[in-house]
């Protein structure tokens, strides 16, 4: 079962949406969080001791709360699809993505994937005290690229981020960047790799309008190379622009699964009216 081939080098030929090859299969997935230090003991020392001594038996008594974040979700994603995940805050979208990436355990059910899905999140590997340049290398290596690949794509990453448009900023420590610049560089690094299954969590809400447009462009490209793209966003416009299918999660349950327009209409009716059309300021609400 060590079939998790991590293909670093393979040049993929672009594939159109192919409704016969599944890349992600979610089979009745339940996800439950356990949170320490709540309820009964209010995090007191006795509650903590209680928790250590009695473990499973008295989870509740010791103040462990269970949060049922995703409930019985099943779907099949196919090669070449771009799937949007929508839902109000706290409806389990990000949780579901993390589980698909294999970073969270599922309570019931199974998630099967083709290759190794990757979360578009390189932020954690970057260090503010290092220059942008060294962070590009570090981030690329952290995502599993080889040194040669990073070297090869370095210029592309920097150009895409547009960090150097206003001067030689890539050689400054990242802590000196504005939050927008930092976000642009992070997205550029993360999007530099081709992924089998790519999971994006609200990455498009960053940067200015021109950068957002470039990001959407890049996502369409990634989608051609990658098998499947998942996008979590509160920005209905970027979902419309990038996705052809939408899953709507509400309170952890899969409420709707269908073509973008259909689901978004129902969702907009549910949340009380459509977003104001073409207002550039309405990013992730």
């Amino acid at each position: 079962m060590a079939e998790q081939t991590i293909e670093y080098h393979t040049e993929r030929t672009p594939v159109a949406a192919d409704s016969t090859i599944p890349t992600v299969v979610c089979d009745g997935v339940d996800i439950i969080y356990r949170v320490n230090g709540t309820g009964a003991g209010r995090g007191s020392a006795t509650a903590a001791l209680n928790r250590m001594l009695r473990r499973e038996k008295a989870e509740k008594a010791a103040g462990v709360r269970k949060v049922h974040a995703v409930k019985k979700v099943s779907f099949v994603a196919y090669k070449g699809e771009a799937i949007g995940l929508i839902g109000t805050n706290g409806s389990g979208k990000s949780t579901l993505l993390k589980a698909v990436a294999g970073l969270l355990p599922v309570e019931n059910g199974r998630i099967y994937t083709h290759g190794q899905p990757s979360l578009l999140g390189v932020n954690a590997a970057l260090m503010g005290d290092l220059t942008g340049e060294r962070n590009v290398y570090l981030g690329g290596l952290a995502m599993g690229m080889t040194r040669e690949q990073v070297k090869e794509r370095y210029q592309g990453i920097v150009d895409f981020s547009g960090i150097n448009e206003k001067g030689d900023f890539i050689t400054l420590p990242m802590r000196t960047y504005s939050s927008g610049m930092g976000a642009r560089l992070r997205f550029s690094i993360a999007a530099a790799k081709d992924h089998d299954v790519l999971l994006i969590d609200e990455a498009l809400a960053t940067g200015d309008r021109s950068f957002q447009r470039r990001s959407e462009e890049r996502i369409r490209e990634l989608r051609q190379h990658a098998g499947t793209v998942f996008l979590v966003s509160h920005n209905n416009k970027s979902i419309r622009d990038t996705c052809d299918r939408v899953l709507w999660l509400e309170r952890g349950e899969l409420r709707m699964d269908g073509p973008t327009e259909e689901v978004l209409e129902a969702y907009e009716a549910f949340t009380g009216g459509a977003d104001k059309p073409k207002a550039p300021a309405d990013k992730a609400a």
Partner: peptide
Amino acid sequence: PADEDDLAALAARHGLTVSGARP
């Protein structure tokens, strides 16, 4: 749900692996 077996079978047919398993 009725299609549960189908999903597992579908995944097996296309050689998908379980996400997050230890190598």
